[in-house]
Amino acid sequence: MDDELLRRLRTEQARALLDDADPHHAVMLACDLLVAGVDGDAVVALAAESARALPPHDANRRLAAVTEELGLPEPDLPTAVTLVVADTCERILDRSIPAEVGTHHLYVVGYEGSPLDDLLPTVAALAAHLEDDLGGRADDDLRARLAALAQTILHRLTPGNQA
């Protein structure tokens, strides 16, 4: 399995640990694993699911079976937070998730043991502004502030740049 597939798998595993795996991403990941020649029973079962209809709970269960089948241990909490936050920031910056979703997904910085817990007040302030002042719909200013935060986070997560 190449590094990119492993990173994606570890990220969905971390997302399932902290909250719920993204069913669409989990199914697409399983399909990509099959294409790459990783064809265990659990991978095939997840790839056969509907990316639109798979409930998050079932995605978590199927993904856990895949990681068990592949012998991947569950990440520790700080690693899980780092994986999910980095992925969320990348999605914010490439606009593959709406700012409204990305803002709330960044709350994982506040998990116990997070290397980014000092950013929780910043995330909470952006979320409060989004919900209280903007009625839940991001404007250009919030998108710009969120993108700046995402860049800051990714910079901090780059080895050698930790605060």
Rank of each mutant, 00 (worst) to 15 (best):
H129C: 14
V66N: 01
H129V: 14
S50G: 03
D39E: 15
E49D: 08
D39T: 13
D3T: 01
L29T: 05
A21G: 11
V101D: 09
R52E: 05
A80Q: 04
A124R: 15
T88M: 06
L149P: 05
L70H: 00
V38L: 13
H155M: 03
M1I: 13
D32M: 05
A144K: 02
D141E: 13
D117M: 08
V109C: 09
A125L: 14
R8I: 00
A16H: 10
T158M: 13
A80N: 07
P78Q: 10
V27R: 02
V123A: 10
E100S: 08
T67D: 01
P23N: 10
E4T: 01
A45W: 07
L33E: 00
V123F: 09
A148Q: 12
Y111P: 02
L154H: 09
G110Q: 08
L83A: 06
L70Q: 00
D118G: 10
L5Q: 01
I97G: 05
L18R: 05
V108F: 14
C89Y: 06
L54G: 02
R95K: 15
G113I: 14
L134F: 10
D117T: 10
L6Q: 11
D140H: 08
R62A: 15
R61H: 08
L120V: 08
L120I: 10
L149V: 04
E69H: 05
A127E: 15
L157Y: 07
D94V: 03
A59R: 02
P121R: 09
G71H: 06
M28S: 08
V43I: 13
G37H: 12
N161I: 11
C89G: 11
P73A: 14
D39C: 11
E4V: 00
H24V: 04
E90V: 11
L29E: 04
E131W: 10
L72W: 10
L116F: 12
L93A: 07
P98A: 13
T79F: 07
A138W: 06
R52W: 02
E4D: 09
A47P: 08
M1D: 05
G160T: 11
G135W: 11
I92P: 12
L119K: 09
G110Y: 07
L120K: 15
R8G: 00
A80F: 10
D22L: 05
H24Q: 07
V38C: 13
T11A: 00
V38E: 14
S114D: 03
V81H: 05
H105C: 05
D87R: 12
I153C: 01
P55E: 03
V85W: 03
V85N: 05
G135H: 13
A51G: 02
G71C: 11
A125I: 12
L130D: 04
